[in-house]
């Protein structure tokens, strides 16, 4: 199915038309929790882009060179989540050693990322859609960037909104969801561009 799709098509589709957050609802938890300030969102966004790209590569390798030959594909949930958790842990340790500045910028977000459903979701989508190796890299990268774009835009809106009066019962999560809905509408405007299923 993915044979006919060029990698750049997958890349742009993952950012715009099939935005992982706004059309697939993945990564909502940290999205709602963190998207209050633009600075933190940028940090978390970069961490997600990085982890998503690398884990989709690692999981692709594990799936095609370990799980398929051994006929253990039903174990993929366990293997993927362990790879993601282990990878995040290792990266955290390396960053802590190598650069204090980077650790302060990214390190605090890394533990959050293990439980970010978007990361696991990208790996699962990649398996279900049967992407080739190159396509998986671009799918991971594109999804990460798409997520970052969404969370930064959201944080910008929420910072402005701190000054406006929201109905009391709607404050917090409610209004954030309405904004997310409007943003999803806006992103649907891209859907004429290209489509992946």
């Amino acid at each position: 199915m993915s044979e006919g799709l060029a990698f750049y098509a997958i890349f742009f589709a993952a950012i715009f038309t099939n935005n992982i957050l706004l059309t697939n609802y993945l990564g909502m938890c940290s999205f709602l929790a963190v998207s209050r300030e633009v600075d933190t969102s940028v940090g978390l966004g970069w961490a997600v882009v990085f982890v998503m790209t690398t884990t989709s590569v690692l999981n692709w390798l594990a799936y095609h060179f370990i799980l398929i030959p051994l006929d253990l594909t039903y174990l993929r949930f366990v293997v993927f989540i362990v790879i993601i958790a282990a990878f995040v842990q290792i990266v955290e340790m390396i960053i802590e050693r190598v650069s204090d500045k980077l650790y302060i910028a990214l390190g605090i977000f890394l533990p959050l990322i293990t439980v970010n459903c978007a990361i696991l979701g990208v790996s699962l989508f990649m398996v279900i859609r049967d992407y080739t190796f190159v396509n998986s890299i671009f799918f991971g990268l594109g999804s990460g960037i798409g997520w970052m774009v969404a969370i930064i835009a959201m944080a910008g809106i929420r910072q402005k909104m701190a000054r406006s009066r929201v109905p009391r019962a709607l404050a917090g999560a409610g209004i954030a969801l309405i904004i997310a809905g409007i943003m999803a509408l806006a992103f649907m405007g891209f859907s004429g561009m290209l489509k992946i299923t």
Binding site: L22, T23, N24, Y25, P167, A169, L170, A173, G174, I175, L177, I178, A180, G181, I182, A184, L185, M188
Partner: peptide, 20 residues
């Protein structure tokens, strides 16, 4: 489609919290 789910959940939360 996707926006529908966001709006629905927001309205739901609104109603329940308002009642609370």
């Amino acid at each position: 489609m996707a926006p529908g789910a966001f709006f629905m959940l927001a309205v739901f939360i609104w109603i329940v919290k308002g009642m609370m």
